[in-house]
Amino acid sequence: MSKIEEALAKIQSKPRPGGGSESLPRVDLPAAMNVDREAFVERRIVTAVFESGPAVEEYKKLRTRVLAWLRAAEGNVVMLASAGGKEGKSLTAVNLAVSVARELHQTALLIDADLRRPHLHQLLDVKGQPGLSDFLMGKGDLSGLFHSTGIPKLTLVPAGTPTARSPELLASQRMGDFLKEVRRRYQDRIVILDAPPVLPATDAVILANHADGIVFVVRAGGSAREDVQQAVRQFDPRKVIGVALNGAIDTGHYSAYGYHYVTSPVMAGVG
């Protein structure tokens, strides 16, 4: 049995109050009960708190399109990429992951693949280490890689210790093996890769080789059009699912997110 298999088996053995697919790794969900729902709202993880609302509905649409694509492609790994930073890619990845996790028969594994500037663990208020970079560098085993997020059926693999050697690590055999293992063992689980920005580094292009579909995140009023076009050209067009447009002004819901939204039963009673 490989180390990855051992780690996954260890996770699966842990109790998981949130329920979910029996084939999924077990995560330490009781910690989620301590999570303040206000904290999710503060972190803009609206899909974890609200049942509906403009943003929630848009994330649901995004989820539907992604799942349909992956079914058609017979894959389960989707990567979120953006031309530059500050496009809202990580937030989109988290909300997409939560939205996927809320599907009845789906679980979600969110992997923070931005090894230079890890961010997802802060967003989900999870320990950042050990993480992917540590694992890829041979520090630590797979069992410590999967972290409970407090959201049922959603597991996070944080980026780990920040490193400038991310291209080498992501292109390594160990990374390939890791994703193969995840893909093989948990076929009903959707793996969401939060890639670093495309233009500053080649990490995202390397990661794209492991993804079955790519969602390109664009912030309205963010990167210049030429940069976005250049970034999109880096990928195989057959893999690009579409664009998630953040901060869109033509959705008619440009105003502040309000509490009048229907609270999600997922988080009801939490906090």
Binding site: E42, A55, G221, R225, I241, G242, V243, L245, N246, A248
Partner: peptide, 29 residues
């Protein structure tokens, strides 16, 4: 400003579908 502003602009210039147009989310704080 050379950035994208709307769904229409994105679809016309990138020739990709906008599969989610998420409005700006502001937190209570």
């Amino acid at each position: 400003d050379r950035s994208f502003r709307s769904r229409q602009e994105v679809e016309e210039e990138l020739h990709l579908s906008v599969i989610g147009a998420i409005p700006e989310i502001s937190t209570p704080s």
